[in-house]
Design a protein around this nucleic acid. Structure first.
Length: 335
DNA sequence: CTGATTTGACCGGC
DNA sequence: GCCGGTCAAATCAG
């Protein structure tokens, strides 16, 4: 709408052609994203996934359960039937991490992973010394984000926490951040603003904004190139208070999968996912599994917008404010 | 007063 | 019937 308004306000002088073209492209891109969201909320496509990788957090507002491919897809109304949602949640992508916390820091639990969680239950687990805590996204109701996690202290090592994530965040953690109080969990551990990973992610975005330029100097000689500031190694992601280990899951490196990898405050930034990146200093992630039917639809949906002209780099990116919601949803962009 | 946590009850899968 | 996961009323905290 914003771009449409600007388009309407723009004059049609020849020097405005580029600006008009830019707004038109943005509008078209918005249409495509809207169509993608509609697909995710009930209409299933059967396109082949481009990547074997975790689902990318997106701000669709659609519950995770609707993303998964179902043999008999239900209508959107099914979200109102919680029991059915609960069933389908079994199909949510699930992965777990082991987080070690240094006792000298006085932390009573695993560090902030950048997301806002709300505890909704605790349960004594048979055979486990410590109870398991259940968390769901703070923005479940506001943004219909169905990500959950379970935290359980290890029996053998009290400083070790097993964290199981179910579902990916569809929320924008920046949403209403000015008025949204932080959860006590954050108060216990570390303010999100001071989270090194958050800072680094923001720096990465800043770097990207600073360095992501289209080299058009010798456009006639070669294809436009795009300088990319990311180092393939994200050792800086490890919180100094935490000792993370990285493992490989199956045949696929899972860098870019963990929510600790993506910008905590900007889930969309995972759109910059690097299919082959490595994380030397991140958490141990294991048991990555999700319903096999989840990914095809997800990626087909996500890549359905790859034809968006917005990535055509036909306009100067310098003029684009690269905020976390910038629709950089092109997995092929960084190939 | 508002939002988060606690905790017993409830539900569904096995 | 057991057990894990979730709900929701009561309680806590800022």
């Amino acid at each position: 709408m914003e771009h449409a308004k600007q388009l309407r306000a723009s004059s049609c002088s020849s020097d405005k052609i580029q600006e008009l073209d830019f707004h038109i492209q943005m509008i078209l891109s918005s249409y495509e994203k809207s169509l993608s969201i509609l697909q995710w909320t009930g209409i299933v496509t059967t396109q082949t996934p481009l990547l074997i990788a975790p689902p990318l957090p997106v701000s669709t507002g659609a519950p995770e359960s609707s993303i998964s491919v179902d043999e008999n897809p239900k209508s959107i109304d099914d979200h109102q039937d919680f029991r059915y949602v609960s069933k389908k949640r079994k199909q949510m992508p699930t992965w777990s991490e082991q987080v070690r916390v240094s006792a000298e820091n006085g932390f009573e639990g695993p560090a902030d992973d950048g997301y806002s969680w709300r505890k909704y239950g605790q349960k004594d687990i048979l055979g486990a010394k410590h109870p398991r805590s259940y968390y769901r996204c703070t923005y479940r109701l506001m943004q219909n984000c169905w990500a959950t996690k379970q935290v359980q202290r290890s029996d053998d090592d009290p400083a070790l926490f097993d964290i199981t994530y179910k579902g990916t965040h569809t929320c924008n953690q920046n949403f209403n951040c000015a008025t949204q109080p932080k959860s006590p969990e954050k108060h216990k551990f570390k303010k999100q603003a001071n989270n090194p990973r958050t800072i680094q992610s923001n720096q990465m975005l800043a770097n990207l904004q600073a360095n992501l330029r289209v080299n058009t100097n010798d456009l006639d000689k070669k294809e436009a190139t795009c300088s990319f500031p990311f180092s393939p190694t994200f050792s800086g992601f490890a919180d100094e208070n935490l000792h993370f280990q990285m493992s490989q899951v199956g045949d696929n490196l899972v860098g870019g999968y963990s929510p600790s990898f993506v910008s905590p405050t900007t889930p969309e930034s995972s759109y910059f996912s690097l299919p082959s990146c490595q994380m030397n200093g991140s958490r141990r992630i294991h048991n990555v599994h999700h319903s096999e039917s989840d990914l095809p639809d997800l990626f087909s949906a996500n890549t359905s917008s790859t034809s968006s002209p917005i990535i055509g780099l036909e306009f100067p990116l310098d003029h684009v404010e690269l905020d976390p919601n910038f629709p950089f949803d092109n997995s092929e962009f960084f190939r």
